[in-house]
Nucleic acid binder design. Structure first.
Lengths: 260, 260
DNA sequence: CCCTACATTCCATGATGCGGAAGCGCCAGT
DNA sequence: ACTGGCGCTTCCGCATCATGGAATGTAGGG
């Protein structure tokens, strides 16, 4: 950075405006990816930043309560992040939960809301089915887009070029025997989804779980609703009954999103 | 900092090193306090920062995915915060949940883990009692220290001077008829807690709920475990049986905290 | 239709964050 | 116990980067 001849900056393609912020959040993410705990030098290795720089950022975060320093001098995500995340989730849940609750009442299976986060989908709200008490709070969980109902629904609402870009970056790794791994088949799947307004997930992420998902139709709305349940209850007749309800819920959430 | 005559800055006592970071997180907190949604000028009013400054910070956060801009141009907490918060909670929960689960198995009442966050306590892990399905995920909730079992347990593990400092700042507002409001009585309560190794919460935050809490004994360990249930089940005999178990759990968590 | 209020962009200024290098404390090795 | 090495922390001069006042664009209200 000291000579004016080469101003190319291959790292951090387009972070944002304030670099210290981008770096700090990068550190938080790096820490999360590292399993929620890391030493300073490990962070330096992963991010390529100077130790002194990292130390200052990290120290600030510790002072603010968003990071904790363990007795071993390593760093962990701090308690305040839990609070913020909870508030954020509540925020999403506030307007989505009523609609999801209706869906569960009509269908009897677990209903989810997810949004696009980079190249993956994050669950931001969930209303569990009355059938099985399973599934803790899956809220906040990030899943691949290519093998989940919500993921495919999210892609189907994107401009095809953007969707193709995401798929190109993430690839189509097989998770179960039914996961779609052929790009051409996947493209057709999205085309069908756009046509019908909903997608199916035929146990592509978890065997035995069938899922109906629809995009949340809004202006900027990168969101998707889904209803999922075990194959035993989700037969073809059930899907035929469920699909229109999920699509309607997506539309309803879209108008809510635009309004509030 | 613009004029040399008056450098007193009553606001933001000691933020941290990197000011843009402190401000950005301040904005996130302000947004959370405002109900999770606010316009730019509202943020400007609440924080006292220049609109241009806020806009740049906020725009960066939007680019990074930690904030979302609604069609109405207002701002909301973004999906990535949900993910980070969940990871942070999982991080705490990972090593705590097994111990809490054992506690619930032995006692049959809800078990919690909380840490000190500034002058308040935050719940970071919880295993619900099999009895009542009540209580959603209370994780992330911040509560006062003076009227909760975990709060008093946290204070009892602190150097008395530090505990007194916190109490001096927060005061002892009455929340229920049994809340301790006399500083001298409260100091004695903490002394007893240090002596016995556990504290009771006699419906001091919510009438009818009795709670046994113990500090997590670690090197720097500002954490506390608690078990709480309705008075009907938490009689004196139950408390006598429960207290040693909670203390033991605190000790166990302490060694885990020091190790991993 | 104009007008007010809000969000957004521009730009010169200097405060502020940056990172190389030196200092310390902790384990591991012998 | 001594020593070496590694990783965390602190210092300090330089210039980059964030800052905020003012100008511009945009939406809703009278």
């Amino acid at each position: 950075m000291s000579d004016g001849t080469d101003t190319s900056r291959p790292e951090v393609p387009r972070a944002g405006g304030v670099q210290s912020l981008a770096r700090a959040f990068g550190l938080l993410e790096t820490l999360a990816e590292a399993g929620g705990e890391a030493g300073l030098s490990e962070l330096a290795d992963r991010t390529g930043l100077a130790p002194a720089t990292i130390h200052r950022l990290v120290r600030t975060l510790v002072d603010l309560g968003y990071l904790r320093q363990l007795p071993s001098r390593r760093y962990t995500l701090g308690p305040k992040l839990v609070g913020l995340g909870e508030t954020a989730a509540r925020q999403f849940g506030r307007w989505a939960t009523p609609v999801l609750t209706d869906l569960v009442a009509e269908i009897g299976e677990t209903a989810n809301l997810a949004v696009l986060d980079g190249d993956r989908a994050v669950y931001v709200a969930q209303v569990p089915s009355p059938h099985q008490m399973r599934m803790f709070t899956e809220i906040g969980r990030r899943v691949p887009v290519h093998c989940t109902g919500v993921g495919k629904a999210l892609l189907s609402a994107l401009p095809p070029a953007d969707a193709a870009g995401i798929v190109a970056r993430t690839g189509l790794p097989a998770v179960t025997p039914t996961t779609i791994t052929d790009p051409e088949v996947f493209a057709r799947e999205l085309a069908v989804a756009r046509e019908r307004g909903y997608v199916l997930d035929e146990g592509e992420q978890e065997t035995g779980v069938r899922c109906v998902a629809a995009p949340v139709t809004g202006p900027h709305g990168s969101a998707a609703v889904s209803v999922s349940g075990p194959l035993s209850r989700m037969d073809d007749a059930a899907v035929a009954r469920i699909a229109p309800l999920v699509v309607a819920a997506g539309r309803r959430l879209g108008t809510l999103l635009a309004t509030a």
